[in-house]
Design a protein around this nucleic acid. Structure first.
Lengths: 252, 252
DNA sequence: CCTCTCGATGAATCCATCT
DNA sequence: AAGATGGATTCATCGAGAG
């Protein structure tokens, strides 16, 4: 399968994608959380919010982390509405969110025209424990469909819980990177041979997973640095598939 | 520790509970979900919605499954506001919800005055698979606190994911019964010796867990049948604690 | 006591058929 | 037409009972 990368603002680039041309939208927008107040959320950069002070890595920060909840919902619903247009009837959308934006993300999904179908949990065993409290072990994925779904077209049975730690060490190229093992399971909701769209591509894990699982990929990324990182990773994934060296089983 | 059962409407009975008298509110309200349209959700009984046609068991249905989303939010926020009054400063509230009511439940929790602190996932391995879809494997627990929390008062480290199947066979007494093993973990957020309140008690699993873990319990239940079932189970739990025959480890 | 088989069922979802 | 009712579909999990 092949991929295509668009650089630039997600809404502008989405408008250029043909209607009914993709099977499935999977994306992980900037959560705009990390602060209990609007001021805390909007005054710190993504790096300051999501990495421990003094952590050694030097990963690039990313933009889009300066919206309050109302404008976040509006921004995301516009993107999801435009993605809806680009998706074939019966296609699906999966949107990552943390607990703080669960309600806003559900609203945006439905405002974008999608039928909300469920919530998945991604369990991160290495989440930091908190004294006197419950650990925030899970992030969530809300999913929906464009109208009725045809189970015969893709008769898979997919789980509602995914367990994996965030990538570490040399494989970690983005602050909020998703494990390819998780993404490989999620892309199976797309018809084999169909196209997966990610309008907040980041370092391209969704695309890598799509290619490894025999789906095509279209990605949009506003940050030049990460578009370049994704380009490299996607080229490598295509090579692995062509040479047959891709793991047939998802990595642990 | 001891328990107290109040029979009747949750809001009326809550009003009789003294201010600042409980440590922690844990409850599992009727979800008012289970249907594609408002009509399907509000016109069918809990049994009709949630039990497989032809199922052999004869468990009682339960009331309160007739609200649309707007009135559900209003109803729940009233109950959570009244519970807030009854809770000591720094106390906590935990509310079960399914994916459909995640947003409404978060709104109600905050409308009731609580600081929303997070979302937990309860993973049910035996959930029914769905062809061409993701299985609804998880239910969720939203939790919050009454103002600032004092970690020194109860320095526990509690997980954000719980795995257990619904009780089966003779131990199953309610359609939507929660496993005591899960509830025993959750009640640990209450200070040892403190009181746990459940204003939608059902068959009393929250209370059983509270007593087994050395917390007191106050329960409210509107259905006479289930108030009676809970009374029996709580009496039995008190006996087990007194005789030292309670499992020190949560049941599997 | 452990392993295997069998059978029941799930906070589901959807549709055909009446009213 | 739109609402109400009843039943078909589906498989991973788990308990019961056999080997």
């Amino acid at each position: 399968m092949s991929y295509k990368i668009h650089r630039g603002d997600a809404l502008l680039r989405l408008a250029e994608i043909p209607s009914q041309s993709v099977d499935c939208v999977i994306t992980d927008p900037p959560y705009n959380s990390g602060g209990r107040t609007a001021k805390e959320r909007t005054s710190r950069s993504a790096r300051e919010k999501y990495t421990t002070a003094g952590s050694a890595h030097t990963l690039e920060s990313f933009p889009g982390e300066n919206k309050d909840q109302r404008s976040y919902t509006y921004w995301l619903s516009q993107l999801l509405a435009e993605s809806y247009r680009a998706t074939r009837d019966g296609g699906t959308a999966l949107v990552f969110t943390d607990w703080r934006q669960l309600g806003a993300t559900a609203d945006a999904l439905q405002a974008g025209g999608w039928i909300w179908r469920g919530a998945l949990a991604w369990y991160k065993p290495a989440a930091r424990p908190q004294r006197g409290r419950f650990t925030q072990h899970c992030e969530f994925v809300l999913w929906g469909s464009k109208g009725a779904m045809d189970a015969d077209a893709n008769p898979v049975y997919l789980p509602g819980l995914y367990t994996a730690s965030q990538p570490k060490g040399a494989g970690r190229v983005h602050i909020t990177q998703k494990p390819v093992s998780v993404m490989r399971e999620l892309v199976k909701i797309a018809t084999p041979g169909g196209t997966v769209l990610d309008f907040c591509m980041g370092s391209g894990s969704t695309g890598v997973a799509a290619l490894l699982e025999g789906r095509g990929f279209v990605g949009i990324e506003v940050t030049d640095h990460y578009a370049g990182v994704a380009e490299k990773r996607l080229t490598e994934a295509v090579r692995q598939v062509r040479e047959g060296t891709a793991d047939t089983e998802p990595a642990p």
